[in-house]
Amino acid sequence: MGRELTTGDFDKLFELQTQRLGEAHFLVMYWAAQGEDLACRYNITNTFDDMKRLGITRTKQTAVAIVEALAALCFIEIREERNRKNIFITTYGAKALEALVLSGRFVPRASGYLEEHAKT
């Protein structure tokens, strides 16, 4: 049997996972949090549209892969609601987003969808 994992190991794992996130992951978590804050459902299609607009990707597959990766890490939760896959940031995701903000690696960029929603 291997040794039991300590709190230090989990911290290290979290640090490594966060370090490997890219700008697209950062933005998805940020937009998900912003959507929740605006009481607006933010889904995978919105993610793809925003990424396409910002020139991050041109394929939905990539957008889906990014979202799924975040979900696999438990940084976001995907809920099937009315035939839409809505995205919600988890408390782990919030911690990861906070770490990315503090590291200064990425700068928040606006979501077109959420900006439109805020105007209405």
């Binding site: 912003q34 804050d37 940031i89 906070e98 903000v101 503090l102 700068v107 928040p108």
Partner: peptide, 21 residues
């Protein structure tokens, strides 16, 4: 530093409002 830069401060504020931090 985040506060000084201004960028990102809003993100953290959002997360706090949501009670996730």
């Amino acid at each position: 530093a985040v506060k000084q830069r201004g960028e990102g401060e809003e993100v953290l504020a959002t997360l706090r409002r949501l009670g996730k931090l």
